[in-house]
Simulated scan of single mutants.
Amino acid sequence: MQPAGTLPAAPARPAKTASFVQAGFLGGNEFGLIVLICVFAAIFSLATKGFASPFNLFTLGRTMAIDIVIGFSMMVVIVSGGLNLAVGAIGVCAVMAGGFAMERLGFSWPLGLAVTLLVGAALGAVNGEVIVRSGVHSFIITLATMSIFFGGMVFLSRAEAFRGLPPEVAQFGKLRLMGFLSPLFLVSIVAGLVLAWLYRLTALGRRMLAAGASPRAAEVSGIRVDRTIVGCHILSGILAALAGAMLTARHGAAIPSMAGHLGQDWLLPAFLAPVLGGTLLTGGKVSVLGTFLGAMLVSALTNGLLLLRVGEFWVQAFLGLLLLAAVLLDLGRRRLLARHRIAV
């Protein structure tokens, strides 16, 4: 009991277990990426005449939007501890199917988009099923299907573009909001919000993270890891198809070479965005915001360097070095944390 005449003790203040810098945003990849984006934007605005112009911001926004969704399409597979080298091939195959439906079969653009996304999901399901049934690593399977999908598409389409699409497709790609903002950028924001909701608030998203973090523990807890991996590849196929549809709106046509030979032009942004954003290549950890910002940084760097008339070869070399540095820094960070027994 408390002695008479004494004041009651003030309730103890909860101790701060970790500061905001240590526990959250300021100490993570996201804050660093925001700083880098702002720094490079300022440098390019001062060093070039056109970087901050409304036209370049519109063009940059369209490029960023597509790179963001491409990054998402790789991120959702990396979460499971796998890879999808066929994202570009899937995206091109899906939009060529959608283009065929709109030009040759007379489908409206909403039905053509539905066909595009369904084909992307189907090709993603093929990847997932072959991976889980064969037991071969996704790197090998998707490397093979990249060639198979692309080769089949070229054979069926005879490498001819579909340019007679509904006019709404090109109009959407050319539309400007407030004079400089592309609606494609808004599509990428919506995609990011949906993925953030998936991983934070749904049981499916938690199963995907658990399957990537520790497949054996996930199996013991009742998660069907094989089905979850297939689901990750289906989602990757849908996002690759969405990126392809956005690229089609930008060009106003479905073109077989829109992602480069075998879709290889998508591979560098597909890896750079999630790796820079903090998604672990070993699986089990995802950062939707980090991937979004990572793609923004890559697009801004590419755009700014090209405006400075740096050769495209040197830009690609620089981005390759950036990816290598990001992987090595992440490896070093995880080793340091493991040495001090701090959870990643």
Rank of each mutant, 00 (worst) to 15 (best):
F162A: 08
F180D: 12
A259I: 14
A338L: 15
L209N: 00
T48N: 14
G28E: 15
F72L: 12
F20G: 02
F292N: 02
A300M: 12
E160K: 15
L165K: 09
M74W: 01
L268D: 07
S108N: 11
R309K: 13
A241P: 05
P8C: 06
V169P: 03
A101F: 08
M178E: 03
N84V: 06
R158L: 12
D265S: 13
A213S: 12
A210L: 00
P256V: 06
L195E: 04
R13F: 00
S53V: 09
A101N: 06
A300G: 01
L323Y: 07
S108D: 11
L117P: 01
G231W: 05
L143F: 10
G124F: 09
R200P: 00
G61C: 04
L113N: 03
S134F: 06
E219V: 00
L117T: 04
G237M: 06
K174F: 09
A191E: 06
G205T: 07
E129N: 11
L204E: 11
C93A: 15
F162T: 06
G212I: 15
I43F: 14
L331H: 11
L321V: 14
V87Q: 14
M75Q: 13
I43A: 11
A125F: 05
V310S: 08
L289N: 01
I68M: 06
V194Y: 02
L204A: 11
G332K: 12
G231P: 02
G135T: 12
P183K: 08
L184C: 06
